[in-house]
Design a protein around this nucleic acid. Structure first.
Lengths: 222, 222
DNA sequence: CGGCATCCGGGAAGATACTG
DNA sequence: CAGTATCTTCCCGGATGCCG
């Protein structure tokens, strides 16, 4: 413990009352927004975050978690004794970032420089379904998928024109089940790859409709 | 000119197909989002950007403008010969960032750490009106303001429940005129400062209603 | 293993001065 | 006015090691 630097000039910040500037103070540091993204489906442990964000080193992750906690965007929480582990969880205010991060993601996807062949995390892929979902394309479809991506499983539900995605048990009830690597599922949904490369159970025709439900937005013209 | 480093590994980037990650590649660098913010009401010259973003040094501004141009978010444009000056202007895709930057600003304003007493640029203040505007509060009010903030003048129009803000001539027609420093107008609208500190012409009662039209959102509770 | 501290190299940011 | 050149400072990213 060191008490030096009582002055502690709160890092580098924009000296600006503008809300947008403050937003960049809060989540504009490198990796900060992606840490928030990874927590949007629920709490995670340090090691999970590290595994889901390759390229982010442990010391920087520590710094970001400290900063985001001080900002009130997330909390560290200790799980009940049986599995006494520490997890990081967004606060309700932190969860409110979801629509903005999704909108930014949808906007950035239209960049000519965007490369969809790069690796993608399970969380990011499931969030992309929420941001690309087209209610028009879905019509009055009602369907439930369970999607298993590595260690994580999600339940994707389409009903009443709306889409919902949440963490789920791998064996939760659903009309169709997909097991795949994130990259493979991304290639199928967004890249036109054949369905044969996925492990599908249940209603295969429903899975075949999935790419049509989440069309990529058109690229930005000059 | 130096041609070394043909490899040119496109700066630092997140190696991630996620749209949100790409968005942070595009506008997550320091000052980038604020440069975009300053251009949301129209093109500006290098010196104007520099004046409106105190703390941003010339060399960094040059780098950001280069990066944002390569990304297709803005263009440099040369004005017709009479006033042969170069300006920077958002592309239509760049302008689409407005609702996201406003939403982030509104969200960040609810941070316990947000300090509204810091300096604010004319553009940022006028944008804040768009993001804080409450149609409920406005009811069926119809009103037009001309707001003069230093070198810039804006026209703020409320009609049919909607708000519109745009650059305007200082003597454009309006129901009421306000001339002030950005900080003074901010203190009146958001800080409860008395109207006497503003230079007002025209319908003074209309100006008195302004703070009620743009209520600050409640702070985030834990 | 999870979390955090420390050291180091490279590179971006910030301040200042300079040039067309 | 519109940038460029240079120098310093600090952040980022990787490696290592300590401690619970």
């Amino acid at each position: 413990m060191k008490l030096e630097k009582v002055t502690e000039q709160r890092k580098r910040h924009y000296d600006d009352a503008c809300g947008t500037a403050h937003a960049m103070d809060l989540i504009g540091e490198r990796w900060a927004a992606l840490v928030v993204r990874e927590l949007l489906f629920g709490p995670k442990r340090f090691g999970e975050l590290r595994a889901d964000l390759p390229g982010l080193s442990a010391n920087v992750l520590t710094q970001r978690l400290e900063g985001l906690e001080e900002s009130g965007i997330l909390q560290r929480r200790r799980l009940p004794p049986p599995a006494s582990a520490q997890v990081y969880e967004l606060t309700s205010w932190g969860y409110e970032l979801e629509p903005m991060l999704l909108a930014l993601g949808r906007w950035a996807t239209r960049s000519p420089l965007h490369d969809p062949t790069l690796p993608i995390s399970p969380t990011a892929l499931m969030l992309s379904f929420k941001s690309m979902y087209s209610a028009d394309r879905a019509g009055d479809l009602t369907a439930t998928f369970v999607i298993r991506l590595g260690e994580y499983s999600f339940r994707l539900e389409i009903a009443g024109g709306a889409i919902g995605v949440e963490k789920a048990e791998p064996d939760a009830r659903a009309d169709a089940y997909i097991s795949a690597e994130p990259a493979a599922l991304g290639a199928f949904v967004y890249g036109g790859a054949p369905i044969d490369l996925l492990a599908v159970e249940g209603d295969r025709a429903l899975v075949a409709r999935l790419p049509g439900l989440v069309p990529l937005p058109p690229k930005a013209g000059s």
